[in-house]
Nucleic acid binder design. Sequence first.
DNA 1: GCGACTTATGTCACAATGTGACACGAAGAT
DNA 2: ATCTTCGTGTCACATTGTGACATAAGTCGC
Lengths: 218, 218
Amino acid sequence: MGLRERKKEKTRLAILDAALDLFLEQGYDSTTVEQIAGSVDISPRTFFRYFTSKDAVAFWFHEHGEEIMLEVLRSRPAGESPFVSMTHALRAVLRDLQDSTPEDAQRFLKLRRLLDDHPHLVGLSVARGAETERHLATEIAARRGADVTTDRVSHLVVAIAMSSLRVGFECPPGRRPELSQVVQQMEETLELVESMMRPGWDTGEPVPPADRPGSGAA
Amino acid sequence: MGLRERKKEKTRLAILDAALDLFLEQGYDSTTVEQIAGSVDISPRTFFRYFTSKDAVAFWFHEHGEEIMLEVLRSRPAGESPFVSMTHALRAVLRDLQDSTPEDAQRFLKLRRLLDDHPHLVGLSVARGAETERHLATEIAARRGADVTTDRVSHLVVAIAMSSLRVGFECPPGRRPELSQVVQQMEETLELVESMMRPGWDTGEPVPPADRPGSGAA
DNA sequence: GCGACTTATGTCACAATGTGACACGAAGAT
DNA sequence: ATCTTCGTGTCACATTGTGACATAAGTCGC
């Protein structure tokens, strides 16, 4: 890897760290791009060359996770049921998280605290997740041999899987958990979701009708 | 209702309609607040007094739906299982949609097309939905007699219910469905989700462990 | 090492979103 | 009729985000 790319990566991380610290110190809204840029001695214009927006700082983890999940998804055996494939993808993200360097772990925890303090950002992260969900759904639909534009099961598989990750990510306000605790909580939530689903729910096999409330007897 | 409030409501709807039409005509990004304001003869400043942001135009439906759902949720009998309560809340939104005036129906369909054409807005809607999900989860947790900050089942109940609504909302690109078709599709998706869940999954009863893939045999 | 190229950065200019402050005029109350 | 309330317009302003261009640093072939 050349000097250029190393420098770029260094700058990127410097911006990321500076931004996270400033956000946590003085709040997200009160922190301007100018401040962030100033604290790493770059021009505001350059900030936007590294992050497409101020919000994008909070997406960094999502984008990384999406790459991993898509990669894992494509590597799973063809016959595997979609949700099982998704759980493997999710657990790959969790493993990557656990194996990350102490620096990255710190960044992750800072990001978690930031999202804790600023629900608005959770929303934006989720919004970013919607994009991710479409990519994943496309992949899943392909595996199911279905058309992603019409096959609702594919979308639901992804939506439910991502929900478990998102719910597991949250913590009681004020908590400052260790990385391993967060990972464990995400793992537990995933297991909880797995146990909630009816066997074979994601394979498109006909399932016995459940007793539904408002549907017929309104 | 006084003249003032009637005027206000009229202005609000005028802005909404003008914004939706402009967005659909020339794209969301290419449409400025100045244009919207101009086309209903108000100052841009006044636009922001009716809608907190340009994005907020796309949230109008979400906010309406959230009110309905919270209201229904609070009116459900105490013993009812959380997810069943949520399905009633969701179906109340669907009923309200079907019973809406032709004008509101048009607005809804325009909004749907807008979200179809601009995935970015779907994201923002979902972001707004994250806010909604927290409110609903609080209500659900109260019904379960659980602490919303720790009870993951509450969050999952809401997340899964909202997922079904969101997935049912989507259409193949380019489709221009009737209102009733969209509603029917949402209803079908909800039924699909109901059939996917293991009976009693939302009541916190211990469930038999399912055969999970990566958990023990990694 | 030298020259030609690629590319990251800074500067400048600018559009657009969003907000606070203040003044004016119409709606509403007594 | 008068006083109060409140919606609106105007002005000023901060902030985010982008395009264009110049410059300097990194990269590659010789």
